[in-house]
Amino acid sequence: MSETPTVGTPDITLYTTAICPYCVAAKNFLKSKGLSWREVRVDTDPAERERMVARARRTSVPQIFIGDVHVGGYDDLMALHREGRLEPLLAGA
């Protein structure tokens, strides 16, 4: 499910696969925050997987980007949130 960007926040990009529980958890968390994102399925597009690996330097999913900032995976996203650093990033800081 691809959402439309939320006005005023940097674009959020999620690299995902269909059978990834952490991808679902990341999307549910973002949805609970009222955020939207662009989902890139790397299991259906080998070129996108290559782009994700080149960009994130990781092969696991999800890989989450807020604007040009590589957040990492779901655990990294939750750590950023717990540390109070997610909201400033979403505000473009």
Score class of each variant (00 low, 15 high):
Thr13Tyr: 03
Asn28Ile: 12
Phe29Ala: 10
Ala25Thr: 05
Ala26Arg: 01
Arg58Glu: 06
Phe29Asn: 07
Val53Gln: 03
Met78Ile: 15
Arg58Trp: 07
Glu3Ser: 13
Thr59Glu: 09
Ala79Asp: 14
Pro88Met: 03
Ala54Trp: 00
Leu30Thr: 03
Gly73His: 04
Asp76Pro: 09
Arg57Ser: 12
Glu50Lys: 14
Pro10Asn: 06
Arg51Asp: 06
Thr17Gly: 07
Leu90Asp: 06
Val7Trp: 01
Cys23Arg: 01
Lys31Phe: 09
Arg41Trp: 11
Asp45Ser: 08
Ala18Ser: 14
Glu50Thr: 13
Leu14Asn: 01
Ile19Tyr: 14
Leu80Gln: 13
Val42Glu: 01
Val53Trp: 04
Ser32Pro: 05
Leu86Ser: 05
Ile12Thr: 02
Val69Ile: 10
Glu39Pro: 04
Asp76Phe: 03
Thr17Ser: 10
Ala47Asn: 09
Val40Gln: 02
Glu39Ile: 04
Val61Thr: 06
Pro62Ala: 01
Pro88Trp: 01
Ile66Cys: 11
Glu83Arg: 15
Met78Trp: 01
Val71His: 04
His81Ser: 12
Val71Leu: 07
Asp75Thr: 14
Arg57Cys: 10
Gly8Met: 10
Arg51Tyr: 05
Gly72Ala: 10
Pro10Cys: 05
Leu30Gln: 03
Tyr22Ser: 07
Ser36Glu: 11
Asp68Arg: 13
Val7Gly: 00
Pro10Asp: 08
Tyr15Gly: 05
Pro62Ile: 02
Trp37Cys: 06
Pro88Leu: 03
Thr4Gly: 09
Asp68Ala: 11
Gly8Arg: 00
Gly92Leu: 06
Arg55Ser: 13
Leu90Phe: 01
Arg51Ile: 10
